[in-house]
Design a protein around this nucleic acid. Structure first.
Lengths: 231, 231
DNA sequence: TAGATTGTTAATCGATTAACAATC
DNA sequence: TAGATTGTTAATCGATTAACAATC
């Protein structure tokens, strides 16, 4: 059964695939024709073993003793990740973040396009951002169904997120990228990824405190000594 | 040595701590005084065993047979994560995304505040967004040092990201939250977290393709049968 | 005391790393 | 052929889950 992975690839391996893809695109622009797992690993901050292991989940794309053809490997990654298929996406919530997502050029560059936007605020409904007309929430169902939109971006307040999620799923959305700081419940046939800014910042804050706690732990010893010295 | 974890907590455990904290805040608003690991796990989409294991990395905060005091546990989480300490943050890159980050109220609500913003575009320099005056890049060093800013948000184009990163680190920044779609290289004393929208969307795209491939794999059988039928 | 629920230890699971035979 | 580098298997590492003794 070609195309079917023997063993399921770890989530992190898929994410690294995106990194490889991106790096291969840069190499290609630079006119580099061939790359080794070693080279690719230094460029992506991975290891050579991991690059080979990650790729092996999906097939064998290189030549022993030679390396990988940049163009061919890139197009394999492209195919696996579904890049450039022009997936239409819906955006719900056109506040500050939502507007920024509409304007984000990273999506169209990878072949993902926000083709519909919705908001519950009547003042926003009807406004046009980047050629997209903001529609009211009660048109979610019809529009998503009609345009067969499978992916949606959720940029609404935490309190509204679960209800909107259910609306979207009911309309046929299969993939959700959630920006609201809340853990959404979705049925098992729906895929969910989350971008949670608070979690990221708090994680950094934790690391910072921890490193300072370590510093002061070793400082304690010095402090102990210092207390024996006259001020 | 109190406060020092016996075993290092996994990165994911820290991130889940943020979720617990957030959920505890909601429970407290609702006037709930006590919570069990079981209850907390259903609210956060975790498991009871995981909640207890995660907390155990940092101490023992509950009472056997009773559960956890919501207020006390929340304040422990707050302390561990460094929430509410009023960390001042710098933002570099005041485009669409950067502006949205400046306006994002989730940061101040957790006690993280963007107090300085920088941009290389002279047209943006001098503009005021949410009481923050956008400064030119050549003031990064002085400003970050003077205000002892340890955390920075990076919302610049991928091509500029590495250079800006080095500028920030040179100025004394210890934590970076990167929004540019590139893998940054940082020295080991600097902490880095990344929000990469392309990776998230491509991950969802992969899952969607994979699920459809599985469908069509079973469809193949049906299709084989169908080809034997007259059109 | 009996029931509940934690904190912790041991078992399981999964992902990463290392090693190397295959082969260009 | 000798050198290089892949693809794959085995070893290691780390995180999650399950079980249960401690104890409220």
């Amino acid at each position: 059964m070609p195309g079917t992975p023997r063993v399921k690839a770890p989530q992190m391996a898929i994410r690294r695939l995106s990194m490889y893809y991106r790096t291969l695109a840069v190499l290609r622009e630079q006119g580099v024709a061939s790359v080794s797992s070693e080279h690719l690993s230094t460029l992506t901050g991975s290891t050579a073993a991991q690059v080979r292991r990650d790729l092996a989940y999906f097939g064998s794309f290189g030549r022993r003793g030679v390396g990988y053809d940049v163009e061919s490997l890139q197009s394999h990654m492209r195919g696996i990740l579904g890049i450039g298929e022009g997936w239409p996406m819906a955006l719900v919530g056109v506040g500050n973040l939502g507007s920024a997502l509409l304007a984000y050029d990273g999506f169209p560059r990878q072949g993902f396009r926000i083709v519909e936007a919705f908001d519950s605020d009547p003042r926003r409904v009807g406004t046009v951002i980047r050629d997209v007309v903001v529609k009211p929430m009660d048109q979610v169902r019809e529009t998503v169904r009609e345009r067969r939109i499978a992916m949606a971006l959720l940029a609404v307040p935490a309190k509204a997120a679960q209800a909107v999620t259910e609306q979207l799923i009911d309309a046929g959305v299969r993939c959700l990228l959630n920006f609201a700081p809340i853990s959404l419940k979705v049925p098992s046939h729906v895929y969910l990824a989350s971008v949670d800014l608070s979690i990221e910042v708090e994680y950094l804050s934790y690391l910072l405190r921890e490193s300072r706690a370590e510093d002061s732990a070793s400082n304690d010893i010095r402090t102990d000594v210092t207390t024996m010295m006259p001020l």
